[in-house]
């Protein structure tokens, strides 16, 4: 049982890493800041490759989230209780999934989204991503403090 939970956490970790990396690669920054010049990282400057990667990891992420929710509803495992931190995470994940899904639909030919909505989706998606990163840092600091205080 313990090993299975670790595999799930590991999958979440790998997915977060690549989804964030490929997400940031959608902005023209990796070439500008020499990151794609590092041997083996040239692909970070290819917008089409990182776009496909972002989609693939988004799919894995959604699969993981649905698996976690199903587990919680059916087996009452996974989340022990809905803490404040857990609720914040759920709100951020929901925001990322909702805005991301709408952006995926937007990328099909002939989508009816207004330009204002497209801009709002772009900004909201980045804001949810930043919120998740800041919240992750906050949780790390909090955990470290708890460990230090014994």
């Amino acid at each position: 049982m313990k090993k299975k939970i670790n595999i799930q956490s590991c999958l979440y970790g790998i997915t977060f890493f690549f989804i964030t990396l490929s997400g940031f690669a959608q902005m023209p920054i990796f070439k500008r800041y020499y990151i794609s010049d590092i041997p083996g990282l040239g692909w970070l400057a290819d917008f089409y490759i990182t776009h496909l990667m972002h989609y693939m990891f988004a799919g894995i992420f959604m699969g993981l989230v649905v698996y976690s929710i199903s587990n919680f509803i059916v087996l009452k495992t996974g989340f022990i209780q809905l803490t404040r931190d857990m609720i914040i995470k759920i709100v951020i994940f929901s925001g990322l999934i909702l805005t991301g899904s709408l952006m995926v639909i937007k990328n099909f030919s002939g989508t009816p989204f207004s330009n204002g909505m497209v801009i709002a989706l772009d900004i909201l998606h980045i804001l949810f991503c930043m919120a998740l990163l800041f919240f992750g840092v906050y949780q790390l600091i909090k955990r470290k403090k708890e460990l230090l205080s014994g």
Binding site: Y48, M56, G59, M62, V66, I69
Partner: peptide, 20 residues
């Protein structure tokens, strides 16, 4: 390519449900 992957992505939630 991206849009084909997007269509395939619809299977992801179903895979999550199937695993559960």
């Amino acid at each position: 390519s991206g849009n084909n992957i997007a269509k395939a992505m619809l299977i992801a939630p179903l895979a999550g449900i199937a695993a559960a």
